[in-house]
C-alpha cells in the first residue's frame, strides 16, 4: 500500500493581536499593541494510504482547516514535514495542484458570473487536460452528478446543492489523486446529501481517489469513512475506526435493570461508583465508568436491593460521541 498523504510533526503557530478594553485601552492601542502566539496545529502526524477515505473531524478552531491548508500548500507550517502525492505541498505548490482537487463547501471554486459549462471548460485549460480525457471525465461527472439540467445556468443562480455538484465536477476533471473536501454536504437537503455521498464512494471505489474530508455530519462519516482522525486544540486525540473512538472517548456505559419489586435505593450506589439516572417502578437505570467497574460488578451490587428479572447494557451512541467532540 502506497502512502498518499504523509504528515510528520506538522505544527502551525500564529501571532495574534489582542485588543484592550475600554476607552483608555482604545487610546493606548493607537501607540502599542499586545500580541500573543496561538498554536493552531501542534505536532500532528498521520499517514493516509492510496485509496483511503479519512474523516478529519474536530470542533471549530481545533486546527482542521489549518491542517488542510498546509496539506494543499496554501500554508507553510512553522515546523514539521509533509508529502502529498510525492510533493512537498508548500514548496511544490503548483506541481501539487495538478494532483489534487479541493472543494470548500461554503466557497465555490467556480466563476460566479459564468455558466457552469464554461467554468468547467475554463478549468480544462487551467489544468491542461487533454480534450479526450476532459470529455470522458466531463461525461462521467455530468452523468453521475446529474448536471445536465443546469449546465448552462450561471453559477450564481444555482441552488446550493447544484453548485456543490458543480464544484465536485470541477475538482475532478484533471484526475486528481487526492481530493480534499471541506464540509461537502453542509446546507444540503437529505436527497442531495445522499447523492453526493454515493458519488464520493463511487469515485473512491472506481478511481481509487484518496479522500480527506472534514464534516459535521455523522452520516457522512458512517457512510464514507472507515477511519477517522479527531483533532482537538491542535492535537490528534484519535486515529482509527469509529468503534475504537467510542472505546476511547465514551467511557460511560448505561445498565438498565428490571427488579421483581420496586427497590428502595440508597446513596451506597454513588460510593460504589454508579450514578442513578432514573427509576420508574421496577425499572432502574444506572451509569458507570467502564474503567472502574465491570458489568458483573454492577449487577452484583444491584442484587443487594432485590432480585433481578432482566437487564441490558447500552453503549453510548456514536452520534452522541460526535456531538460530544464538536461541543468540546
Amino acid at each position: 500500500m502506497t502512502t498518499q498523504i504523509q504528515a510528520r510533526d506538522l505544527s502551525k503557530r500564529f501571532e495574534r493581536h489582542t485588543r484592550r478594553a475600554g476607552m483608555v485601552g482604545a487610546m493606548r492601542g493607537l501607540f502599542d499593541r499586545a500580541s500573543e502566539t496561538v498554536t493552531a496545529v501542534d505536532a500532528v502526524s498521520f499517514d493516509v494510504a492510496r485509496g483511503e477515505i479519512v474523516g478529519y473531524i474536530g470542533p471549530n478552531g481545533a486546527g482542521k482547516s489549518t491542517t488542510i491548508k498546509m496539506l494543499t500548500g496554501v500554508l507553510t507550517p512553522s515546523s514539521g514535514e509533509a508529502t502529498v502525492a510525492g510533493f512537498t505541498p508548500w514548496s511544490e505548490r503548483r506541481k501539487l495542484a495538478q494532483q489534487i482537487g479541493v472543494v470548500f463547501g461554503q466557497r465555490t471554486q467556480l466563476w460566479w458570473d459564468l455558466p457552469l459549462i464554461e467554468s468547467l471548460e475554463l478549468l480544462q485549460h487551467v489544468y491542461r487536460v487533454p480534450e479526450q480525457r476532459f470529455r470522458e471525465n466531463f461525461t462521467m461527472a455530468a452523468e453521475l452528478l446529474e448536471l445536465g439540467s443546469f449546465l448552462n445556468t450561471p453559477v450564481r443562480q444555482l441552488s446550493l446543492g447544484q453548485r456543490m455538484r458543480g464544484d465536485l465536477a470541477a475538482a475532478l476533471l484533471h484526475d486528481p489523486q487526492v481530493l480534499y473536501l471541506d464540509e461537502p454536504t453542509i446546507g444540503l437537503d437529505l436527497v442531495a446529501k445522499t447523492n453526493i455521498r454515493e458519488f464520493l464512494a463511487h469515485l473512491n471505489r472506481e478511481a481509487g481517489v484518496t479522500i480527506l474530508l472534514t464534516t459535521h455530519d455523522l452520516a457522512d462519516i458512517e457512510r464514507l469513512c472507515k477511519r477517522i482522525i479527531v483533532i482537538d486544540h491542535g492535537h490528534i486525540v484519535h486515529d482509527g475506526d469509529l468503534a475504537r473512538l467510542r472505546d476511547k472517548i465514551a467511557t460511560e456505559r448505561t445498565m438498565t435493570v428490571d427488579f421483581d419489586d420496586p427497590p428502595t435505593l440508597d446513596d451506597q450506589l454513588e460510593t460504589r461508583g454508579m450514578r442513578l439516572l432514573d427509576q420508574t417502578g421496577q425499572r432502574v437505570r444506572v451509569a458507570f465508568e467502564r474503567s472502574r467497574l465491570t458489568a458483573p460488578d454492577v449487577l452484583t451490587a444491584l442484587t443487594e436491593y432485590g432480585s433481578i428479572r432482566d437487564m441490558s447494557i447500552e453503549e453510548p451512541s456514536i452520534e452522541s460521541i460526535i456531538q460530544h467532540i464538536y461541543k468540546a
Partner: peptide, 11 residues
Amino acid sequence: FQQQFAYRAAT
C-alpha cells in the same frame, strides 16, 4: 467615537 481609535494604521 471609540471604534475609530482602533484603526491605527488607517488613521
